[in-house]
Each structure stands twice: as C-alpha cells, then as structure tokens.
Write a protein that binds this DNA or RNA. Structure first.
Lengths: 233, 233
DNA sequence: ACCTATGTGTCTGATAGCGAACATAAAAAT
DNA sequence: ATTTTTATGTTCGCTATCAGACACATAGGT
C-alpha cells in the first residue's frame, strides 16, 4: 500500500529545464481536509497541482443537495477546464477530502503560462481531455447505478488515487459525494461490511477485499480506471 | 419560432479569410435521424459542424441501458474533446436526434488543423470549456432530479437548439436519453400533458407553454442555458 | 382493406431511495 | 468527569422508479 510519492504527474511530465522554472514559481502548501480549493460561480484564485491526497469537485443544487462529479489526485491541475479559455466560472466547487500536499500558483498567472508555453498547454489539454471522458462516464453512472455500486466504485477509485486502504470519511460526507441520503449510505456500507468487503468505525473506512469489492462496483470503476492509465504517456 | 439559420457558430466565429479556406475543405451533408456520428471506444472517422438539427452524446452500459450526457446543436464541433490531445477514444457515442445538416471533415485532418491554427484552436478550446461545464451540471442533474424535471429540461433545451416547438421523438427514445424506463417517461409526459405544458401524439411532442414548462424543469435548465450564452463572445 | 411495425396507456408486484424521526455510541470540548 | 458534538444504527411510511406484461391505437407498407 504505502503513500503515493509526493509528485504531480503533470509537473513531472514537463521537460527540463522548463520543469524546474515552473517549480520555482509554485508555492508548496499543505491544506487540511475540508479546505475549498475553489468555489462555484467564481473566478478561481489559485490553480492547484496535487502531490498527495484527494479532492472532490462537487455540484450543489439550490435545495442544498449535491453530487460529486470528479475525484482528483496527483494527476493533472485544478481547475483544468477553466484554463481552456473564455469565462472562468463554473458550477462546481472543489473540496479537499483529506489532508492535501500541493503546489499552487495564482490562477491568472497559470492562464498566461497556458498561452505562452506549448509544452505546458499540451499537458493541460491531455488532462482536460481525459477528465472530460471520465466525467462523461460518471454522468451516466450517476443516473444508472445504485448507491451500493457507486459507493464501491468510489472507494476503489479513492484507493487508487491515494494508495491507502484506510479512508477518513464519515457516511454523511459520503452521502454528499454520492448524491444520496446519509441513511442510504449507511445501508449500502452496512451491506458491504456484512459481506466483509470493507470495515469501518466512526469516520474511518477500510477496504478489506479489493477483488470482491470490484465485483460489487459498477463497470464504471474499470472504465474510469482505464481512462486514468497513461495519462501523459 | 422558425428554423435556426443553417450556420455553425464556431465556423462563423472564425476570422476571414481563414474561415473561407476552412469551408472549402468541408463536406456539406444531410443525415437522417438515428445516424451515428461517431461510435464509443473508437477513433472517430469524421468531425462534424452541425448547421441545423440536434445530436445526442450517449453513454451505454453493458446491460444495454443508456443515458444522454450532452445535447448538441449548431454551436461547436463534434467530438470536441477528442481534438484536445492524446488517445481519441471515449465512452460516448453520438446520434442524430433529427435530420441534421452539417459540415464534416476527416477527423485526423481536423486534428492537424487544431495543431496548426491558433485561431481555430482557441475556438475549439472555448467549446470544450463550455461543454465541460455543461456536462458537470448534467452529471449532477442525472443524480439529483426526477424524470419529470429532466424531461422538461430536455424539451426546453431541444427547443432552444432547434428553434421549433415540434419535436419528433418517441417516448422510447426519450427513455434512452433520460436514462429511465419507457413507462416512466410515459408517466412523466402524461403529467406534463395533463397540466397543458406539452401535447403529443405518436412520436410528436409539442411544447405548449414555455414559461410554465420552465417551472416544471429543474434549475439545471437555466444553469445550462446561461452557459450556452455568448459561446464565442 | 389488410397486415405489420411501432408507439402509447395501463396494469401488476417489487425494490431503491426519500424524508423524517429517534436512540445509541463514540469522540471532543469544557 | 461532565457536557456537547458528531457519527452511526434503525425505524417508519411514502414515493419514484423498475421490470415485466398486455391491450390497444396508429401509421405505413402491401
């Protein structure tokens, strides 16, 4: 298992010496779980390159209900869509789901870098490309699959992005992520625990059996995992 | 009401004389409803600039169920995500929902144009940007809103993209689009008809009262409509 | 006029999830 | 040690949707 290395795949894919010149302009920062990396409907202040930890992009409705539309780890840059062009406001906000170590930079400055450097732009475009395809799959998954399948998918993806089987998340937060009620998550998690695929206690979830948990997840887990492969290869 | 003009907003936003040189390399074509513009998991043969009509991008699961993840009219280029870079296979296929008049071009040729021309690339990036934001909203909508709200949203969006109140679609196809069962669509459509917001008969749906239909739709209609505004402005 | 495809209405029973309430338990704060 | 906050377990009735079946209506082809 072990923690992922503190690398960001996009930054590491940049050619030298350009990579070093970028790093020198980045601010290394550690933020606690719950930190909002950027807000919905606002121009983002910073762009973030995650080194370790995960963050969720979430869309909230006016009645307060919400659903996760993307889970981000140490690949890519956030918010990558907003770098592409035009007005930079979107319906999603981004929240750290655990302690995150990241490099950050003023968003307008990174927009200028996107215009200036073809090497950097190409990597951002690859990131946006993959992420759009992943989002496509998740959009359909949100409609077609039930809470237990989506919970299993989410746990496996979170494991892949963090390298740990131990996730610190309450069922209430998982309900926001999955776009379901807390009681629905409790039932789904209880069903997975009864089958000994996971265990949990008060905000700590542990994956016990990856192979069988994959069987409980919808096909979207595998589809998305394939899209994550060779992100910049 | 009346039909939309036979223009593609992206093409029309190109500066002259470059625009004319692009047009000269495009093939003008009319395709019937049901035509697949590109398949899932395959490298697309053509890129399409729609002039009139609408097409749906759909994701299908292995059990045969499917959901629409995007509705495309005379803005933009399809498949815009695949132009961004890297491997060009995605989980979505694209189907014409009515007769489409479009300009098409070999996909690899348009990829080269994307690399070559900054003016063209900028417009594609704006398209991909807006579309990613719209897709984000739809991904959450698919999870959080019921069939009747989503049906109302879809009908209004289809109207906005085609300029007509008369849509030729069976409830069976609407079920595929909305990711629901045909009987669920029948119930939702029946409820809207009882309130005199729409009328329909055998594959023909008509919007009767836009204002009140908007009231029956979820907030996602307005959110997405705002994102469509000033696409290239 | 007939047949056939397809679209629609409408039943069933079954299930997933909602929405709200309440009890318990564990951690955190004082 | 006590209080407060938060997380989880569990109940209830209710609704939306599923899954399957069948009847009927309509449009198109012959």
């Amino acid at each position: 298992m072990g923690q992922r290395p503190l690398d960001n795949l996009l930054l590491e894919a940049l050619p030298q010496p350009y990579r070093s010149s970028i790093y020198s302009r980045l601010e290394e920062i550690v933020v606690p779980p719950g930190t909002v990396l950027y807000e919905a409907d606002q121009i983002p202040r910073y762009a973030w390159f995650i080194g370790s930890g995960i963050a969720s992009t979430m869309v909230s409705m006016s009645d307060g209900r919400s659903a996760e539309i993307g889970l981000w780890g140490s690949d890519g840059v956030l918010p990558c869509y907003h770098l592409l062009g035009g007005m930079a406001r979107g319906p999603a906000r981004c929240v750290a789901q655990m302690e995150i170590k990241a490099w950050r930079i003023s968003f307008p400055e990174l927009q200028r870098e996107f215009q200036r450097s073809e090497a950097f732009r190409d990597l951002v475009l690859r990131c946006a490309h993959r992420r759009s395809l992943i989002l496509s799959q998740i959009a359909a998954c949100n409609r077609l699959h039930d809470a237990e399948q989506r919970l299993a998918r989410w746990l496996l993806t979170a494991h892949d992005l963090t390298g740990t089987n131990q996730l610190s998340l309450s069922q209430g937060f998982l309900a926001d992520i999955l776009g379901s009620r807390r009681t629905t998550v409790t039932l789904a998690a209880g069903a997975l625990r009864r089958r000994k695929l996971i265990s949990y206690r008060r905000g700590q979830i542990q994956i016990l059996d990856h192979a069988r948990l994959k069987g409980a997840a919808c096909e979207c887990y595998g589809t998305v995992r394939n899209l994550f492969q060779n992100f910049y290869g």
